[in-house]
Design a protein around this nucleic acid. Structure first.
Lengths: 223, 223
DNA sequence: GTCTATATTTTGATAGAC
DNA sequence: GTCTATCAAAATATAGAC
């Protein structure tokens, strides 16, 4: 019998079993991201995540082991997303275009992946016990590299003199607040949710503010 | 017997009993703020808070009832603090001085009450179930009032044209990030904690950035 | 691979001695 | 007023039938 070595009780092929596994893992990860975004690692329960994923609680343990391991899987996926945003900030870039593009990318991220942003925020609020290496190695080095480029632009007189590290702290804060504290923004703006126009307007406000804050006059519209 | 109506078994006077009560309540509130700041309402446990307060768990229930009631007491104290920051932004104010003062007050708050800021952040991240009224009534009206003043400054040509509401979102984000995400800032800056000089520098960076962002030239140092 | 039933631990809350 | 001992509910995790 050709199925001799197949330890599965089902008649499915190896390929389809792999497909189901990937689909279930993806469903669980997506549900876990939403739940961890609301209450963080300590506050989230496996029951909530299972219900959000539409699967029995035992399946979560079968696929990911413990709650901590599931959380780390969610965090890892978010970090890959974070680091993928390889922003085009090169020494020869135009500061106005580079900074505007960076802010726009961050705002798009806040809109398309708000739960990822909130999981990250929760992790930082609780002291980042699972992100020490990322913060002290990866992020630190990236900021230092980008800061050298910005320092170059400053020394060339292309933008105002400021500490590039604080510029990053401020840009991250301004853009992520539209994901992390969306409930506050909706309350003050008196809307159920931000639509396309509202997001475009918010993005424009932040870009203009950042460029002026950097001492860069927004590109003149016409001569 | 003059103690006839005193339902206390101890010989202490009413005044000293009141003193102990206030002290214990204060200790519990302070410990609860620290614990709620790290993991939010859902993630915090009464055991953790009791240990942080150096009191038996039963005392927390004796003084505050349930965990939710203790949380609301913490939130209420924070909101009073928040609203007390009656910033001097009047129509006749100088925009540069008013905005710089507002940012400075917010930065001082981030430094002196980081746990309060983080409790608030956790509450917003989980959808603000205990702050709906505050956000939709108190905060909204305050922002509208301040926004009218800023709109006045803009129409007088004293600062750049921008949406005052987004200006507030950005200022809150930039200043609170130094409390909420301090672990990230410490990692990037490669320091154990921010000292006086580092805080003064950060405050200066944010103030300069905000004033330029508002199209206000920082006061010239000398003629 | 899936999921029901259950074991074990932890948590919020309280009773009752002091 | 205080705090030890304890309860009932909810949590994480797993065993084992299917």
């Amino acid at each position: 019998m050709s199925e001799l070595m197949n330890n599965s009780a089902s008649p499915r092929t190896t390929a389809s079993r792999g497909r189901i596994r990937r689909e279930n893992e993806a469903r669980i990860l997506e549900a876990a991201e939403r739940v961890f975004a609301e209450t963080g690692l300590a506050g989230a329960t496996m029951s909530q995540i299972a219900q959000a994923a539409g699967l029995p609680k035992a399946n979560l343990h079968y696929y990911f082991g413990t709650k901590e391991q599931l959380y780390q899987a969610v965090l890892t996926a978010i970090l890959e997303l974070w680091l993928d945003a390889t922003d085009a900030m090169l020494p020869e870039s135009d500061p106005a275009l580079a900074l505007a593009g960076y802010v726009r990318a961050k705002m798009r991220h806040s809109r398309t992946r708000p739960f990822a942003s909130r999981v990250f925020a929760n992790e930082l609020l609780s002291g980042a016990p699972y992100l020490t290496d990322y913060l002290e190695i990866d992020l630190k080095q990236r900021v230092e590299a980008k800061s050298r480029i910005i320092a170059g632009w400053i020394s060339e007189g292309r933008m105002a003199a400021l500490d590039p590290r604080h510029l990053f702290f401020m840009i991250w804060a301004m853009t992520q607040t539209y994901a992390d504290f969306a409930v506050q923004i909706r309350a003050v703006m008196n809307v159920e949710s931000l639509d396309d126009d509202a997001w475009e307007e918010a993005t424009g406000e932040v870009i203009s503010f950042v460029l002026r804050g950097c001492g860069i006059t927004p590109a003149a519209s016409a001569p």
